[in-house]
Nucleic acid binder design. Structure first.
Lengths: 339, 339
DNA sequence: ATGGCCGTGGTTAGCGTTACCACGAACCGG
DNA sequence: CCGGTTCGTGGTAACGCTAACCACGGCCAT
């Protein structure tokens, strides 16, 4: 909280009004509903605005009108480029509609998310977009009480808070697992991010297991691994899985850039991919297409999740849409040379 | 701009006051300066806050106090992970100090930046952090008039608006060019991002040329190329440079992931790096360390730029620091196997 | 002509908070 | 034991804007 040096240049609406020879109310109208003001007055007001360098005070405006044009967004991490695509999609839509974006990271912690959401509600955001679907009880209560519309993004949750725009992590993992089986791989391993604080990881693991069950294959704990995020981590996962007694013939890296790290490690070890082991990834980062070999992966509508989330939120705010809604945007398998 | 559904759950300060049996003013104090209120009253107020589910309205608070706890940040792109590190640094500091982050992308356009800044000033942000140093005249006027503190980040500008936290793109490019010369490379090529709307690219080119001049080497236009961002683009740059009559023996990719794209292309073509051609990059993205061979690059203090920028801004807001200041955080060469 | 109605602009009363000042009660040294 | 601090609290007036009325003049239809 700190000083707002308005004083010297801070022209207020009444200064504009004086300069234009009208009342403050007319200035307000000329700015927000130009059609309700005569053309001459409108021109005088516009000239006066430029003359005095007026910058409207939305704090005052929002307080008075009880509306806000700020949307709060919480992502698990600001550094992960996967979320960046979604953020970009959100921002694109908000900009066009004249909304502002307030952003915070939850660090994958529901408590940190709660703090961020509380701060957003204090700023009286018009709506929230949350990239995690796991919330504390206090968070849910707070949001309900505030009556603010919410879009959740990370996966398709069992009990949506309000609106949802996502793809299904479970279905995506299941589809890729089946795909690998169809290609003839018999021992498919799964590497996920730590599932403890990450519902998406759990969903992917569930999808993987479901596919195995459908295929009538046994679960083999030696073929499942949790690894932290990062290229190095992917290389290590590869090493660990391959040095076992019955190594996998295919590895599905269900997260982040793990798969890329593994492919690069295969290069170093001189292992043929998919000759020695096939590798599949979860997210279509462009690096995967450029690796040697290019990596089979899923195309997830990251950017569209952003645009549709923002649009859905704004529709609700504009009263164009009413109830909760769940939008599953699906996914697509991109078969490349690595499998 | 849309409806703020305060009504049902929207407890105001006076509701808390009533529940606690004190005046609204006392509630305000209990919340902001607990030490100035007796322990019993403080406890009653805290209980009342929980009881009625009170969420302070910072719009009203800021309007009244003429302070704000929101910082506006403009980055060129929300998708580029290079900026993500800086954003993260900023966010980390702001969170700890109880500030909020409003973010927008300029798309590398000064006009879009102007629009974003105007919107931020309308929201009465306490300060601005700008990742570009190229601004329209109107932008400069607006910021000056608003009297809001600003930190610029992208490079060390000729005429700082206010405060600056950065490394010098020119010095960094110069250092890497000298480094390559020292390693014995005779024909060093430079690939930059399009310099038209990107002051950083120009700075890097200037640094490169300065180094050549110091080394007494001629400029060779066939050894300079501008390419858009991306891995594919790096591969193409490599191809173009190498198919010339007198190809370079080293290429300095001064931006983004171009270098990575080039190394991957070399793998595909079976070209030894650095046997056939040496490759150096500009930014220390972790991919570069994992490629085969690992790529020589610069370590730039991206995260620290964020933390220091935020801290400098908050120091100014707290009156702990006064004048403009330029902080050059330097860089470091990481020599790896690719050169 | 005259009543009503639109199109325009002004007036008033907040929005929910904080700054500022006032006030009474304890407290304290001379 | 009394004038002056200090401490804790409350009242009031903004902060800059907008919602909701209200006023006024001109215009048409009857």
């Amino acid at each position: 909280m700190h000083d707002l040096p308005d004083p010297p240049g801070g022209a207020r609406m009444r200064d504009v009004a004086r300069a234009a020879g009208v009342s403050a109310m007319t200035v307000s109208r000329a700015l927000r509903e130009p059609s309700r003001v005569s053309p001459e007055v409108r021109a005088r007001v516009e000239a006066a605005v430029r003359e005095v360098g007026y910058v409207p005070n939305r704090l005052a405006g929002s307080l008075s009108s009880r509306r806000s044009d700020v949307v709060g967004l919480v992502v698990p991490s600001l550094e992960n480029s996967l979320f960046a695509a979604t953020v970009k999609g959100i921002s694109d839509v908000l900009r066009r509609e004249g909304f502002q974006l307030m952003i915070a990271d939850s660090l994958y912690s529901p408590e940190a998310e709660e703090a961020a959401i509380r701060a957003f509600l204090e700023q009286r955001v018009a709506g929230l977009i949350l990239h995690d679907t796991l919330h504390t009880e206090a968070t849910v209560r707070m949001i309900r009480r505030a009556g603010v519309p919410v879009v959740e993004n990370g996966t398709v949750p069992a009990e949506p808070l309000d609106m949802v725009v996502s793809y299904s992590n479970r279905e995506a993992a299941k589809a890729m697992t089946r795909h690998l089986a169809r290609l003839g791989y018999r021992r498919v391993a799964l590497v996920t991010l730590p599932s403890a604080a990450n519902a998406r990881s759990r969903d992917r693991r569930d999808g993987f297991l479901e596919a195995l069950a459908e295929l009538g294959r046994p679960q083999d704990p030696r073929l499942m691994l949790e690894m932290p995020s990062g290229l190095v981590s992917g290389a290590e996962a590869l090493a660990r899985l391959m040095e076992g007694a019955e190594p996998p013939d295919a590895i599905f890296f269900a997260g982040d850039v793990l798969a890329a790290g593994a492919v690069l490690e295969c290069q170093r070890r001189g292992w043929a991919v998919p000759g020695k082991v096939a590798i599949a990834a979860f997210d279509n980062v462009d690096l995967l297409a450029q690796l040697n070999p290019p990596v089979t992966t899923l195309r997830l509508p990251r950017h569209e999740i952003g645009t549709r989330s923002a649009r859905m939120l704004l529709d609700r705010l504009a009263g164009r849409q009413s109830g909760p809604a769940v939008l599953d945007l699906g996914f697509e398998i991109i078969q490349r040379a690595s499998t």
